[in-house]
């Protein structure tokens, strides 16, 4: 599905915005994943050669993973990369397809909104209870807020994709 054309100025602005997001998030997600990899390596090396594993490696891995997954979600959403089955695609009349797309996107959007909203509440709870990690005693709420915000950003991207594709139909 091609969504964006240069003739559409709003789509052009949207394109810029998307480019900006990718330029911002791709280095971040790369660093987080590379960090995860190096962390395991040095943790094992430290444990065997120097008898001193990295303190809290487990928690740092968990934190990096959350960053990879939720930034990855934003990238994935902008590429419309979720797993779908298009088995009956050929049997769906062309007239119905736009409506089908709208409904599917609304469902996707609803799921992202609910996840984002509930994570926000959970982050608030974690802040109130003072939840921390077991070993490094890092506060959990900022990370959960981050998850919530990134899910929300993914939702926004999806909303723009929807609006753009509606405009394209016209």
């Amino acid at each position: 599905m091609t969504l964006l054309t240069k003739s559409n100025t709003q789509a052009g602005a949207w394109n810029l915005c998307l480019n900006f997001l990718h330029r911002l998030f791709e280095p971040l997600v790369s660093i987080a994943l590379f960090f995860m990899m190096a962390l395991t390596f040095f943790d094992v090396i430290g444990r065997y050669i120097f008898n001193s594993p990295i303190i809290g490696a487990l928690e740092l891995t968990e934190f990096s993973m959350a960053i990879v997954i939720f930034l990855g979600l934003v990238l994935l959403t902008s590429q419309e990369g979720h797993v779908t089955v298009d088995l009956i695609d050929n049997f769906v009349p062309d007239k119905i397809k736009p409506i089908q797309n709208i409904i599917i996107n609304l469902i996707n959007l609803a799921v992202l909104i609910v996840i984002s909203w509930q994570l926000w509440i959970k982050a608030g709870d974690a802040a109130e209870y003072g939840d921390r990690t077991e070993y490094l005693y890092m506060p959990l709420s900022p990370l959960i807020f981050f998850m919530s915000i990134m899910t929300g950003v993914a939702g926004l991207i999806l909303l723009f994709i929807m609006i753009n594709s509606l405009k394209m139909e016209k």
């Binding site: 444990r47 008898n51 594993p53 809290g56 490696a57 487990l58 928690e59 077991e134 070993y135």
Partner: peptide, 25 residues
């Protein structure tokens, strides 16, 4: 210098006080 799988909380603090290398898994 022995490597022990340790739980969190007080148990981890006890192990650390005894000079055990904690593996946090």
């Amino acid at each position: 210098g022995m490597k022990f799988r340790v739980p969190g909380g007080i148990a981890a603090q006890v192990a650390a006080s005894l000079g055990i290398v904690g593996i946090q898994k």
